[in-house]
Amino acid sequence: MAAAGPSSAEQAGGGRPLPPLARAARTRGTRSIGGAGITPYLFLLPYLALFTMFIALPAVYGFWVSLHNWDFQLPNKPWVGFQNYVDLFTPGSLTSRDFWQAMEATGKFTLFSVPLLVVLPLGVALILNQKFPGRNFFRAVYFAPYVLGVAVIGVLWTLLLDPNIGVVNYYVEKVGAQENIAWTNSLPWAWIALVAVTIWWTLGYNAVIYLAGLQDIPRELYEAAKVDGASRWGRFRNVTLPGLRPVLIFIVTITILASANMFGQSWLITQGAPGNETRTAIMLIAQEGLQSFRMGSAAAMSFVLATFLLMISLVNLFVFRERKS
């Protein structure tokens, strides 16, 4: 690479013969690209096959489905063109009201949960990165809830948070609340409960990734900063945060996607209550497609949701892009 720079510059500079070394580098470079042949592609092939089979083809098929009134058990699957999409954007249609309510619910949940799920685990990771007795124990404790399935945490918190017979309210009352808090079926409490449960459940995962990132930051940088007289905050801002940048991008991206795909918590803990206020987009899509067997409109909903997520991911990439100063 280093040799390629000057050589091309010289080439641009005129018909002077290339120095032997540069020429060698150049030919070697050319040959190595040509000589690699199909090897890199072979390495990519297994994933490509999986990707094609389980993502690309189903997506194309799903798009095809979204252009019909599709029920796999009915011989007649009428072609409707983009009607399923048009319906989603037509107030008063069969699907629009529920869909946008679910999108709003999804948006709210993402908005409330992502900042907390990005910041809190970082705090936890910073603490767990210190040296103190019992450190490994606490690392395990914070990660523990994450190993539980959504079924388990769903049933667990449904009982704990029950407005009338739950343990949480028992203590809330002990500390002097006048009335039961309806954690699972009133607003805003249902959102608070869902966000809190999600944080409790998945905080450990993000924390572990931060922790790995923190351990990758060279000690010397901190020492150098200390020597230069940087305060604790200064070291965090100028050493830790920049050092965590790739990790931070990763965490923000996956947390947004995970929150936007939230399903199990709403399904189990609030069941969408009150009314449909906490029914997320994925929950609606599952009901529409798998219970009502309206797979065409469910597929259309999925594509609209996917488009939104794509846009958010693009914004995300743009915000975190490498700034050249």
Partner: peptide, 22 residues
């Protein structure tokens, strides 16, 4: 929001049904 007909067994049964349904 479940529209599937099923009768309730005490507690966990329904929960798990909802879960497995989804």
């Amino acid at each position: 929001a479940n529209d599937l007909p099923f009768e309730r067994r005490p507690l966990t049964r329904k929960r798990f049904m909802q879960l497995t349904a989804g």
